[in-house]
Design a protein around this nucleic acid. Structure first.
Lengths: 128, 128
DNA sequence: GTGGCAATACTACCCGGGTAGTAGCTGCGT
DNA sequence: ACGCAGCTACTACCCGGGTAGTATTGCCAC
């Protein structure tokens, strides 16, 4: 049950997000969804999906002449390992420092701060 | 003042951290510092430093027969862009979500939560 | 049944991080 | 004066993400 520290590139992560949103997407659908942000060739997406399948990140089933892809890794799981990796990289494991970096990394709206406060409180409640 | 979205590998980041800690380090010193965690060849570190110099991440001056290296990018700057990149990757820019992911990514001690709360409060004070 | 389209399969390439071996230089100790 | 130790320079390689062109397959319409 090792969680093999998913080392995902930007495109791979983006594709996963698309599949989490809309499971059983065809290559064409994923390609269409990514089109606005990244003008990739159709075959690029197809190739990436195939590569990701060999890595166990996604799987497919056939539907007529198309493949419908599904993510095999949970969003939770990936967020966790990506996040954990960042914390390690950035601050030798100090979560507080990491968050502190995030906070100074950009303009944070009052709204966001409120939400964050709520998050912390909730975590505290859960923790006790 | 361009912040060219530093795309740093793990090793590069680790080397920078070492240099932030101890500027004007020789290759030998950086190598020694990294030794316990990553048993790299001396030349590996030297090569990486040279590569990083061509990318403008570090610079060196000569001291006798050795090169003493200094980071050219600020810790702040790098933390920011690395953190920002994560937020973008993970949650399409939602900082709240990103932090939420970090919070669920591991056991968070009560202490850490307290610290975090303090962080938020401070940010709020600064924001108004 | 044949042309064409849409889909996948295969292959190749680039790039950059990471890793390290080997060659070449130089100053220091004896 | 000479050789060794230590240092940099050069070169090469692997690997994986990313990108895409070309080949092949198979279905559908007419």
């Amino acid at each position: 049950m090792k969680s093999p520290s998913h080392r995902l590139g930007d495109l791979q992560l983006r594709i996963l997000q698309s599949l989490w949103d809309r499971p059983d997407s065809s290559v064409a659908e994923v390609h269409a969804e990514l089109k606005p942000e990244r003008d990739l060739a159709y075959t690029t997406v197809a190739t990436m999906l195939r590569k990701m399948e060999t890595r166990g990140l996604v799987t497919h089933r056939e539907e007529g002449r198309s493949f419908l892809y599904r993510a095999l890794v949970a969003a939770e799981e990936v967020s966790r390992s990506v996040g954990q990796h960042l914390v390690d990289r950035l601050s030798a494991g100090s979560l507080t420092e990491a968050v502190s970096h995030l906070l100074t990394s950009r303009e944070v709206s009052r709204d966001e701060l409120d939400q964050l406060e709520k998050l912390i409180k909730e975590a505290k409640r859960r923790a006790q």
